[in-house]
């Protein structure tokens, strides 16, 4: 296998229509951002799936580590007072 530099990996985000957020669609290899954009159009929007595309080189994404999911997300679990259902109100109270 060659040691030379291969085309880097890019993550592709597509807005399917105005009013919706960009969503992760998948990834692909491309030499640069321009080529990533062209390839993303051909690979992910062949059937009108999008009106806007973001391409981000994968190495620029910082991801949380699932092994640290405990300290990362568990603190939110016991804070039930952050949810409206925590608060008892009499049935007579309307529109709240």
């Amino acid at each position: 296998m060659s040691e030379k530099k291969n085309w880097p990996l890019w993550e592709i985000f597509v807005r399917s229509k105005n009013g919706l957020e960009h969503r992760h669609f998948g990834s692909l290899h491309a030499a640069d951002a321009e080529m990533a954009m062209e390839n993303a159009r051909d690979v992910y929007t062949r059937r009108n799936e999008g009106v806007s595309i973001w391409v981000v080189e994968s190495k620029n994404i910082t991801a949380s580590n699932p092994e640290h999911n405990g300290e990362m997300f568990e603190p939110a679990q016991d804070k039930i007072y952050r949810h409206p259902t925590f608060y008892d109100l009499p049935d007579e109270v309307k529109h709240m």
Partner: peptide, 13 residues
């Protein structure tokens, strides 16, 4: 072709 695309991207960068 792949090598040329990579070289072009690096030059542009």
């Amino acid at each position: 072709v792949r090598d040329a695309a990579m070289a072009y991207a690096e030059k542009n960068e």
